[in-house]
Design a protein around this nucleic acid. Structure first.
Length: 240
DNA sequence: AAATTTCGCAACCGCTGCCAC
DNA sequence: CGTGGCAGCGGTTGCGAAATT
């Protein structure tokens, strides 16, 4: 047999939280700490289900939350992370101190999605929308040239080159440029590490921009921040 | 100034994996 | 080992605010 139900559906408040409810929740968690969301509403005197309390605390009441406008640095980091992780909002949030998965998800859907579309980039695949189908498949598979992942910068380089054969050619200037921009094969065995500080996040993205600008590979960069993924995650996404 | 449309965000819903029984 | 609840996650919805007509 399982445990008893977390809460009765009847007599449960729904919708926006009031100031009083917020105060009760904050006071209770300050006094008793997080945990056991099932029992928390009753103990705190709230007519809410545990799930709702957890969401409210994590997304809005928990200390250390930033709230408000995202910086350019954060924008770029989210885009970079999303290109590698997809809609894994909790993982992405883990690399952005003070931001929640819900906030990032909303921000992605309202701002970044539009931003990428205006650049002609498909927000789902991070590929140019009108790129030719062959050779542009987004994949995490290792070692297959035809399925390799492309960063927007790489796609721009290819599209921007004058020769129509630059993509398929294995020699010449065009292919050398493509080689410099290659997205590394990915090892997605992500390791857990403490989230980076704000300073690390900014440094990370600065480095990423610098690497892209100078066309540096990870080895040339010799920096843990390569790919703008923060030290821990960055290391786990190293080139093979 | 009023009506309508669009946008952004907070909160809910439903699914999944884990784990207590 | 099977059942069912819990916590966490991603997708979706609903509502208030802002912009437009």
């Amino acid at each position: 047999m399982g445990r008893s139900p977390c809460c009765e559906k009847a007599h449960i408040n729904k919708g926006a939280w009031t100031k009083e409810e917020d105060d009760r929740l904050v006071a209770y968690i300050r006094a008793h700490g997080e945990g056991c969301w099932r029992l928390l509403p009753k103990a705190a005197g709230l007519l809410r289900c545990g799930k709702s309390c957890r969401l409210r605390w994590i997304n809005y009441l928990r200390p250390g939350l930033k709230r408000g406008n995202f910086t350019e640095v954060e924008d770029e980091l989210i885009i970079n992370l999303h290109s590698h992780l997809g809609n894994k909002w909790s993982l992405i949030a883990g690399r952005l101190p003070g931001r929640t998965d819900n906030e990032i998800k909303n921000y992605w859907n309202t701002h970044i999605r539009r931003k990428l579309l205006s650049r002609g980039i498909d927000p789902e695949t991070h590929r140019l929308i009108h790129a030719p189908a062959s050779g542009f498949t987004m994949s995490f598979a290792k070692g297959e040239e035809k399925d390799r992942s492309l960063l927007p910068c790489e796609q721009e380089k290819i599209i921007g080159s004058s020769s129509s054969s630059s993509c398929s050619s294995s020699s010449g200037e065009g292919s050398r440029q493509i080689q410099k921009y290659r997205c590394p094969d990915l090892n997605l065995d992500l390791c857990l590490s403490p989230p980076p500080s704000q300073q690390q996040v900014e440094e990370c993205t600065r480095c990423f921009s610098r690497c892209r600008g100078l066309q540096l590979t990870r080895k040339e960069c010799k920096c843990d921040a390569f790919l703008g993924l923060g030290s821990g995650l960055c290391r786990s996404l190293e080139m093979k």
